[in-house]
């Protein structure tokens, strides 16, 4: 509870004028309020929390539990406990979809780091160099970020990747049609699986949007770096790259953590752009497999869908915890000083 130390000490000061203040913590929470106020405070925090827990955390826990059941979602009485059967199925009979989706999610994540995240950081660094018209450049790179990935998919499909008349087709097709989003053959095969041509095309469209996002976050971080740090390093005779690597990058740790978490979560969340393109074969990701089991003949397959959801949860939860503990540890230090 160190976070609240600053608040605590203030309140302790104010408690001095209330000599009756009891020592134990629970009563101290109440003693901050007079009469009716404690109930109002409880309501102010209670209603939003109830909604958030009921619609976000309760379903999250339910997903994990439901992944051990077989259920079509129609009647509770038809639900049966099947242990690990759903997992055996998705890594057995449905392994082609599952492994391809896992691979696609992984590829997307690595690609986001190596491509748009790196480019976004580079652009932020360059645009921070007192460039003329820097705001215009920033606006250009940031504009795709305000678009939904579904719209991004539509724009790229109709303008860039159109089979006969797309911009990419006419630039790189050599006069022939290119089925950018339909070509499911592997660009880079990995065993029985691989990165398909159409998934690679989707990656490029996603990069168009992700780069500006990272650029803006990093730019805000760079503005906060003490200019004298940079000057000192350059006067020391460090090269620009060394200065960035040894001085600037480490001083931006909070932003770096945010960027890592955002990139990982975005890679696991990817859904809109693939769904809006009707999920071309070989471009399935975990979120699509989860949703595909929602409805179907004779109800959905809640158990299998939840098993995919649980895998998604396991993959992201470590990063979520890391981010949250990191953030609140930082705030603690802030409150202490």
């Amino acid at each position: 509870m160190e976070l609240s130390r600053g608040v605590d000490s203030d309140i302790q000061d104010s408690l001095k004028s209330y000599p009756a203040a009891p020592a134990n913590k629970r009563s101290r929470w109440f003693s901050q309020f007079d009469g009716r106020d404690k109930w109002i405070a409880l309501l102010m925090i209670g209603i939003p929390t109830l909604l958030h827990v009921a619609l976000v955390w309760f379903p999250t826990v339910s997903s994990i539990l439901l992944s051990f059941t077989n259920w079509n979602g129609i009647r509770f009485s038809s639900m049966e406990w099947v242990g690990l059967k759903n997992y055996q199925q998705i890594f057995g009979a449905f392994q082609r979809n599952t492994y391809q989706a896992l691979l696609n999610n992984t590829v997307l994540m690595l690609f986001l780091f190596a491509g748009p995240t790196a480019l976004g950081i580079l652009l932020a660094y360059l645009l921070d160099k007192n460039i003329r018209g820097t705001r215009i450049y920033q606006a250009v790179f940031f504009t795709p970020v305000v678009l939904s990935l579904a719209v991004v998919g539509f724009i790229w499909k109709s303008v860039i990747y159109s089979t006969d008349n797309g911009l990419a087709t006419q630039l790189f097709g050599g006069g022939k049609s290119v089925d950018w989003l339909g070509n499911q053959s592997f660009l880079i095969p990995i065993g029985d699986y691989g990165i398909s041509h159409n998934f690679a095309a989707i990656l490029v469209a996603i990069a168009w949007r992700h780069t500006g996002y990272i650029m803006v976050l990093y730019l805000a971080g760079l503005k906060a770096v003490d200019p004298s740090l940079r000057e000192a390093a350059l006067l020391d005779g460090s090269s620009e790259w060394q200065t960035f690597k040894n001085v600037i990058f480490p001083s931006l740790k909070p932003v770096n953590v945010v960027i890592v978490v955002i990139t990982v979560i975005e890679a696991l969340r990817a859904f809109d752009i693939i769904y809006v393109l009707n999920t071309p074969r070989k471009t399935e990701v975990l979120s699509i497999l989860t949703t595909n089991n929602l409805l179907g003949e004779g109800g959905g397959n809640v158990g299998r869908g939840s098993a995919y959801a649980t895998i998604l949860f396991i993959l992201c939860f470590g990063f979520v915890i890391w981010y949250v503990t990191n953030h609140y540890r930082n705030t603690q230090e802030g409150a202490d000083s």
């Binding site: 999250t60 997903s63 969340r269 998604l312 979520v320």
Partner: peptide
């Protein structure tokens, strides 16, 4: 709780 809830992929909770 709120911070972590906002970071979960939406598809995790869609079935329930």
């Amino acid at each position: 709780l709120f911070t972590a809830g906002n970071l979960l992929p939406q598809q995790i909770i869609i079935q329930p």
